[in-house]
């Protein structure tokens, strides 16, 4: 690891001005990606700005939608009884990330800003139609998470900008959902394909009112399968329509081949997982 200076501001304004003042400064949230990158000399910051001294971005609250401070840990989401009641699918995605040791430290803001195409929480937040708040020294803006990622480990964030909040619209609670991380082992792995499905349906008749499908590890960023969503929204959910949507979702992906799986395998897997995701939600809600 290269030498660096450590700065720990106690409020956001100081963090933003430090980021502006020092070139080659990195924001430090949970550190579970940052420190690994620094140890491998893949990242060589001269300054790291620890955000953990800023108390008002560490928790979440409901206020016309859910507002999650960027430094909320993955573990805080996983174990929140309120969230388990309102949006259990979000807790499920949180629970599938890393290990307890990682979840105790890793933050949702860090997960988004690291911009891994396979990020668990990012994929779920994308399905939830989340927005993010970005603050800089003279500006504050809210943008859709679907506009945030620009490629592997890259986002729209410019130097001097800080992601401070993730906003989940209040209607997310109306959905039933599931997160599936597909891989050979449950813990401490990155999914071969990740999928988040949120479904708002009349479970008696099988009518799909709205559906959202987000996919991870099948494109340079987490993506939404918009065409598949469009095919099912407002229509009956039957084996034929679900299979067609699965085919369509697969065609919307652009995976790579790596040591985990080939691109072709990932494309096939998307078909299976779209069907599995929808059927899992149907099976667990038909009788409720």
């Amino acid at each position: 690891m290269k030498n660096f200076d450590y700065i720990k501001p106690s409020n956001l304004a100081d963090a933003i001005s430090a980021l502006k003042e020092y070139e080659n400064a990195f924001l430090f949230a949970g550190g579970t990606d940052l420190l690994v990158g620094m140890k491998n000399n893949f990242l060589k910051p001269q300054y790291i700005i620890d955000l953990k001294g800023i108390s008002n971005i560490k928790s979440f609250e409901y206020q016309e939608g859910w507002h999650f401070g960027a430094l909320t840990t993955i573990r805080d989401i996983e174990v929140s009884e309120t969230l388990q009641q309102k949006m259990p699918f979000l807790c499920q995605a949180a629970s599938s990330l890393g290990s307890i040791q990682i979840r105790n430290r890793a933050t949702i803001g860090g997960n988004l800003c690291n911009a891994s195409p396979a990020a668990d929480i990012a994929t779920m937040f994308l399905a939830m139609d989340s927005q993010i708040k970005i603050i800089s020294i003279d500006n504050e803006k809210v943008v859709g998470l679907d506009k945030f990622f620009t490629g592997p480990n890259s986002t729209i964030l410019n130097r001097g900008e800080v992601l401070t909040e993730i906003i989940v619209p209040k209607d997310a609670e109306q959905f039933k959902g599931v997160y599936i991380k597909f891989g050979p082992r449950k813990g401490m792995d990155i999914g071969i394909v990740n999928i988040a499905v949120l479904l708002d349906a009349d479970f008696e008749s099988g009518l799909c009112k709205r559906i959202r499908i987000a996919l991870g590890a099948v494109a340079p960023t987490p993506i939404r399968a918009r065409q598949a969503e469009g095919l099912l929204s407002g229509n009956a959910l039957g084996p034929d329509s679900i299979n067609k949507a699965a085919e369509l979702a697969s065609s919307e992906t652009d995976p790579i081949s790596d040591f985990r799986a080939s691109a072709g395998y990932r494309k096939e897997l998307v078909k299976t997982l779209v069907v599995r995701g929808i059927n899992t939600i149907l099976a667990s809600n038909r009788n409720s």
């Binding site: 450590y6 550190g31 579970t32 420190l35 690994v36 573990r75 307890i100 040791q101 990682i102 105790n104 430290r105």
Partner: peptide, 9 residues
């Protein structure tokens, strides 16, 4: 909280 001390400064 249990953490990996290699990933804590």
């Amino acid at each position: 909280k249990v953490v990996n001390s290699c990933l804590v400064l």
